[in-house]
C-alpha cells in the first residue's frame, strides 16, 4: 500500500466519476458521478495525510469539510430534482432546453 498506488486508485475513481458526470442524462446518475469524484478526492486527501504529512490532524479536518460538501451537494441536488420535476416534469437534462443560452 504505497502512496503512489493510493493516488492512482484515487485518480481512477475521479476519472470514472468525471465520465459519469459528463455522460449521464438522468439527474440522479449525474449526481452519482459527482459523488464518485468527491470520493476519489477524499481518498487522495487521506492517502496524503496518512503517508506524507506525518498525521497532522488538520488533514482529517479537511476531510470532514469534504464530507460536509458531499452532504450539501446531495441535499440540494435532491431538492432541485424535486423542484424541477414538479415545475417542468423533467427528469433528464435534455428536457431543460430553456436553460440553454
Amino acid at each position: 500500500m504505497t502512496l503512489e498506488a493510493l493516488l492512482v486508485v484515487a485518480a481512477a475513481l475521479f476519472a470514472v466519476g468525471l465520465y459519469g458526470a459528463i455522460s449521464q442524462q438522468s439527474f440522479v446518475m449525474l449526481m452519482m458521478g459527482l459523488e464518485l469524484m468527491i470520493n476519489g478526492a477524499l481518498l487522495a486527501l487521506i492517502a496524503l495525510w496518512a503517508l506524507s504529512t506525518g498525521g497532522n490532524p488538520q488533514g482529517q479536518m479537511l476531510a470532514i469539510v469534504f464530507m460536509t460538501v458531499m452532504a450539501i451537494e446531495m441535499a440540494l441536488g435532491f431538492a432541485l430534482i424535486t423542484n424541477v420535476y414538479r415545475v417542468r416534469r423533467a427528469d433528464i437534462t435534455e428536457k431543460l432546453r430553456k436553460l440553454k443560452g
Binding site: 502512496l3 476519472a15 496518512a50 498525521g55
Partner: peptide
C-alpha cells in the same frame, strides 16, 4: 483526467512521513 492525475501521482516526490 486519469492519465494526467496518474502522471502527477507517479512523478511528484512527496515527502515520506507516515503517521
Amino acid at each position: 483526467s486519469f492519465a494526467g492525475l496518474s502522471v502527477v501521482a507517479l512523478t511528484v516526490e512527496f515527502p515520506d512521513q507516515p503517521v
